[in-house]
Design a protein around this nucleic acid. Structure first.
Lengths: 128, 128
DNA sequence: CGAAAAATTGACTTTCACGTAAAAGTCAAT
DNA sequence: ATTGACTTTTACGTGAAAGTCAATTTTTCG
């Protein structure tokens, strides 16, 4: 029976607009089925959207996300393409590792900011 | 004697354009000194730029970065402001934790892509 | 000093990722 | 048959973050 999702079900689940999902279709990231003109999203589409949004959260562009999806659907068979892909993968990995480092550092800073806040709150609390 | 950096020294070090640094000044993120009209960057400016770029890498907007800088320069003294700040800090923390999770997941996926590539390369290598 | 290199400002343009408005189609329930 | 909620397409708009270009200064160096 393979459930279908409507577009608004998914927008609600993922907190995006219908415009966003249609945009992703225009950009060739997803290909929901149609009943007439209405889009019908399958579980596979839903999972793909999850991945797209994850890519988006970590700052991938639409083009990069499309590329990754392509690789999954149809990995390159030619030597040069494979080498190019591996180069990109390595670049992305470095990029993500840097980002993780940035995040960890920023998390520590946020801890410090919070501590400063708590100290300040204690002072104010004592003063009253 | 407190060294000064020129704008291009910093653009080279950080791989950004002069336009970018001037833009950050226009946006009130940095305040390099001037000798005449020429900007002179101090070590403190340099460190601040590092932080700005780190914020940028993990997807903070200019407005958010400005806000964080503000907090460092002049933490709020009023109760309501403090509570608001702590709320924001907590939101950011959640956001960053999600991002770190996204990154780790994506890193695993990249590992898989690479493995697939290596397998494929081996096949091709064997075939020739 | 005087030319070349570097820096400045201001205006305009671009890219990305959607937002928004308009006008019409779909469908279930009343 | 109508209402109301939802959906569709088309097309133009927007905000953030710079990039580009041109026309001046300013600085540096032989």
């Amino acid at each position: 029976m393979d459930k279908y999702y409507t577009i608004t079900e998914l927008t609600r689940e993922f907190g995006v607009s219908t415009r966003t999902l249609r945009f992703y279709e225009d950009e060739g990231l997803i290909h929901p089925e149609r009943r007439g003109r209405t889009r019908l999203f399958r579980p596979a589409d839903r999972r793909l959207i999850q991945e797209i949004l994850r890519g988006r959260r970590i700052g991938f562009t639409i083009a990069e996300i499309r590329e990754i999806i392509q690789v999954y659907k149809d990995p390159p068979g030619e030597l040069g393409q494979l080498q190019l892909l591996m180069k990109k993968v390595n670049e992305k990995r470095d990029d993500l590792r840097q980002k993780r480092k940035d995040i960890d550092e920023t998390l520590s800073e946020l801890d410090q900011v919070e501590e400063a806040c708590l100290t300040r709150l204690a002072e104010i609390g004592v003063g009253t």
